[in-house]
């Protein structure tokens, strides 16, 4: 398949799938906005009202963490079954299989635009300062994008061989969710001697960085970000190598 065709097809199919997803529902495109509002609403009710320990600006803290955590979690989750889901297509066309996780990641990025806009809009009116550090947002998101792409491709490449991995991935994501401090401040809740371990999880450090720049007018720990960037790059390189290496195996494996 020509490179131009591949990327044309990638964008076109992403758009087509987005349209297909919403066309089933009465409220159609509105769900791109309503859905993140509902998710945020649930977390606000549980952690912002019932479990509120009086932390300052807890709602902003929670929503900032949740938005970027969800981006990671959804892409990885959706991508892990993407190659199996692309079976119909790959049995008919000689298509590079990296197409499937890429398409899922793009689709989730598009949906992120809505929850991100909502978050930024909310933070503008929120008592925390809108500061110069907001300019670091694209950098953080670029790093997270690489991490999302690498993880998504890795799981997409592995799951067809061992479908049972899906359960392991769900467990790992669960663990990461609790370990990333989506609804609590890691630096206050975790024993100092365990902080090192917690921050081995790149999402924990990323969420902290997002909050620093969006809520607290603080520049992030650049050295940590460089480490995450390098890790994400290596992960992506490995995943791409893997998925291209087994490109012709997938149509067979998926038939088993």
């Amino acid at each position: 398949m020509r490179t131009k065709t591949f990327f044309d097809l990638l964008l076109f199919k992403t758009e087509a799938n987005l349209r297909t997803e919403v066309s089933r529902y009465y409220l159609n495109y509105l769900w791109w906005v309503i859905e993140p509002v509902l998710t945020m609403g649930v977390f606000y009710i549980v952690f912002g009202i019932f479990m509120n320990r009086g932390t300052d600006h807890f709602v902003g803290f929670l929503l900032a963490g949740l938005t970027f955590w969800n981006w990671f979690m959804r892409s990885v989750n959706n991508a892990s079954s993407s190659i199996m889901g692309g079976q119909g297509l790959m049995q008919q066309v000689a298509i590079p299989k990296v197409f499937f996780p890429l398409e899922v990641v793009l689709r989730d990025c598009f949906k992120l635009l809505f929850s991100l806009s909502l978050l930024l809009l909310f933070l503008i009116f929120y008592p925390t300062p809108v500061s110069l550090t907001w300019f670091a947002l694209p950098i953080l998101m670029a790093v997270q994008f690489l991490l999302v792409l690498g993880s998504a491709t890795l799981f997409a490449a592995l799951v067809p061989f061992v479908p049972d991995l899906k359960f392991i991935i769900a467990t790992v994501l669960h663990l990461m969710f609790f370990g990333s401090g989506v609804f609590f401040d890691i630096d206050k809740m975790v024993l100092p001697e365990h902080l090192f371990i917690i921050y081995l999880n790149p999402m924990a450090g990323l969420l902290k960085a997002y909050r620093q720049i969006l809520l607290y007018d603080t520049w992030p720990d650049w050295f940590y970000l460089v480490k995450v960037f390098v890790f994400a790059l290596l992960l992506l390189a490995f995943s791409l190598w893997l998925i291209f290496r087994y490109d012709h195996i997938y149509p067979r494996v998926c038939q088993q």
Binding site: M1, R2, K4, T5, D8, L9, F12, K13, A16, L89, Q92, V93, I95
Partner: peptide
């Protein structure tokens, strides 16, 4: 359009 692209053509 999708079908044509799957046959290897650009958009």
């Amino acid at each position: 359009v999708l079908g044509a692209m799957l046959l290897g053509y650009t958009k």
